[in-house]
Every structure is written in C-alpha cells, then in structure tokens.
C-alpha cells in the first residue's frame, strides 16, 4: 500500500527519519525540473534541491497540513531558487547551455536541438520574476491562486508577469518558430 504524504511526514516526525527518503524520491523529479528551468544548470539545481529537502526536514514540524507536503516543499523550493538565481545572476548572467540537450544531442535531430537551445536561451533572458511566473503557469500548470500561494505575489501581478513573459518569448523566438 502506498503511504500518503501525511502518513510519511508523521512517521518522520515521530523519529523514523529514514522514511523521509520516500518523500524525497516522490518529489525529486518534479522539483528538480522546476529548479533546473529556473537556474539553467544541473549543478546549481541539485544544490538548491538538496538545500530545499534539508530545510524542509529541519522545519517539518511547521508543515501545517502533512497531506500537502508536496505543495509546502515546493513553496520552499521556489524561494530557494529565487535566492540561488540571484546569486548566480550576479556571478554570471550569460546564457547557460542546456546540459541535458547536449548530453542527448547525438540522439536528436539537429533542428530539434537548435529549437531546444533557443528556448533555453529565450527563457534565460526573461527577468527572473517573469520566468518564474511562466514556468509555474505553463510548465507546472498551477492555477493563479496556487501560484499566488506559492510565490506570495498577488494574482493580478502574476497575470501581468505571465503576459509579459509570453510577449517577450514571442519576440525572442520570432523567426525561430514556425507553425
């Protein structure tokens, strides 16, 4: 029987620390994808992801609704990704090539690889707040009220950011994309 997030959280809080590994495995990939899309490279993403899971463990007793552990830990990740993005932004604002695309390049048509690279490049050129809003809306498929809860930003501001992100992506990818 698959244990719910709530059961696992309560087990961990009761001292069965090893059960936290199940929660890590359950959310690792989805959270890892978000971190990667926000930060653009695997090394920073895994660092932020690890920091997120460790912070979540340390403050697990503050998880108000253990059944919503996934949403709670995602909220922590969004904040940690912002912080890491800011540090990386100061260190290096240059486009970071899609490492995964490179690793898989031999299995990919050149045109497909080029398209992916252009998307990564365009995404990296968005301001951090617009990139965040776009990914939450269209990649993570959150509703605006969920985005507001996760980011702490008002719905109207988020809609504005998504709108601007879409327009900016259109400008950046115009000429590359054809119907």
């Amino acid at each position: 029987m698959v244990e719910s997030d709530g059961q696992l959280v309560r087990s961990v809080l009761a001292g069965d620390v090893d059960r936290y590994a199940i929660l890590v495995e359950r959310y690792r990939d989805r959270l890892g994808r978000y971190a990667y899309r926000m930060l653009g490279n695997l090394e920073d993403s895994e660092e932020v992801l690890q920091d997120t899971f460790v912070r979540a463990f340390k403050s697990l007793k503050n998880c108000q609704d253990p059944e919503l552990f996934g949403r709670w830990v995602f909220k922590i990740l969004v904040n940690r990704a912002r912080t890491a993005g800011s540090i990386r932004g100061r260190r290096d604002r240059l486009f970071v090539t899609d490492e995964i695309a490179i690793l898989n390049a031999s299995d990919m048509k050149q045109s497909e690889y080029g398209w992916r690279e252009e998307i990564e490049r365009a995404l990296s050129e968005l301001p951090a707040d617009q990139r965040e809003a776009f990914i939450l809306k269209y990649v993570e498929e959150l509703r605006y009220d969920e985005m507001a809860e996760v980011t702490g930003v008002g719905v109207s501001a988020l809609k504005m950011r998504v709108n601007r992100a879409c327009r900016r992506l259109r400008e950046l990818l115009e000429g590359v994309y054809r119907e």
């Binding site: 690792r28 990939d29 994808r33 993403s45 995964i100 398209w115 995404l123 269209y138 990649v139 990818l173």
Partner: peptide
C-alpha cells in the same frame, strides 16, 4: 515552449 520545458530532468 511549455511542452519542451516539461521534459523530465535526470537527477
């Protein structure tokens, strides 16, 4: 773009 960005990541 969204479809492309939904690709899974190998951790």
């Amino acid at each position: 773009v969204a479809h492309e960005l939904k690709r899974s990541i190998k951790i």
